[in-house]
C-alpha cells in the first residue's frame, strides 16, 4: 500500500484523492530485461516521451478530459515545433498548471535537449517526440492500443535513448 500521508508533495490532495492513490492497483513497470546502451551518448539519437498532455494548437485535437479512465491516445510533436504552439490539455487538477502553460518546454524539453546536442553530450534529437496525458486511471486501453504503436515509432526512427518526463 502506498503511504500517501507521508509524501509531502501530495499533502495538498483531498482526502478522497489520497485514499484513491492509497488503494489504487498500481501496475508493475519493471521490465523483464533491460536494454544495455552499446554506444556513447554522443552518438545516440534521443526522443522525449512526456505525459504533460501537450498538443499542437491548430493542428491537433486536445486530449479528451471526458474519456472515463483517461484519454489513452497520443500526439506526435515535431522536433522543430515552436514552443508557442504547444498547449496544455492535461485534465488533472492535482497539480499547478502554471509552469507548463508559461513554458511548455518544461513538459517537452526540446530546447533544453538541443543544448545537450550542441554541447556534444548526446548525438541528436529525434525528428519527433511523443506526448501523452498522464491521468490514465484505467490503463488497459493504453496498454493494449497505444504502447505498441508508440514503441514502433521509436524503433522505426532508430531512437537509442528515451527521456521520459512525467508531469
Amino acid at each position: 500500500m502506498l503511504d500517501v500521508n507521508n509524501i509531502p508533495k501530495l499533502s495538498h490532495l483531498s482526502l478522497k484523492n489520497k485514499l484513491g492513490l492509497t488503494v489504487y492497483p498500481w501496475k508493475n513497470c519493471k521490465p523483464r530485461f533491460s536494454a544495455k546502451l552499446i554506444k556513447p551518448l554522443s552518438e545516440c539519437n534521443v526522443a522525449i516521451v512526456s505525459s504533460a498532455g501537450l498538443y499542437v494548437k491548430g493542428e491537433q485535437e486536445k486530449f479528451d478530459y471526458k474519456i472515463k479512465g483517461g484519454d489513452f491516445s497520443y500526439r506526435i510533436i515535431p522536433n522543430n515545433i515552436s514552443m508557442e504552439l504547444l498547449y496544455d490539455s492535461h485534465r488533472s487538477q492535482t497539480f499547478d498548471h502554471s509552469g507548463i502553460r508559461s513554458n511548455p518546454s518544461t513538459g517537452m524539453p526540446i530546447p533544453q535537449l538541443t543544448e545537450l546536442v550542441n554541447s556534444g553530450l548526446i548525438g541528436s534529437l529525434n525528428h519527433q517526440h511523443i506526448s501523452l496525458m498522464g491521468a490514465i486511471t484505467a490503463p488497459g486501453r493504453f496498454i493494449k492500443q497505444s504502447i505498441q504503436p508508440i514503441v514502433h515509432i521509436l524503433i522505426a526512427d532508430k531512437v537509442d535513448v528515451v527521456l521520459f518526463v512525467p508531469i
Partner: peptide, 9 residues
Amino acid sequence: MCPQTVGLV
C-alpha cells in the same frame, strides 16, 4: 498517474 503512464512505456 503520470509516473505509471510513462513507466508502462
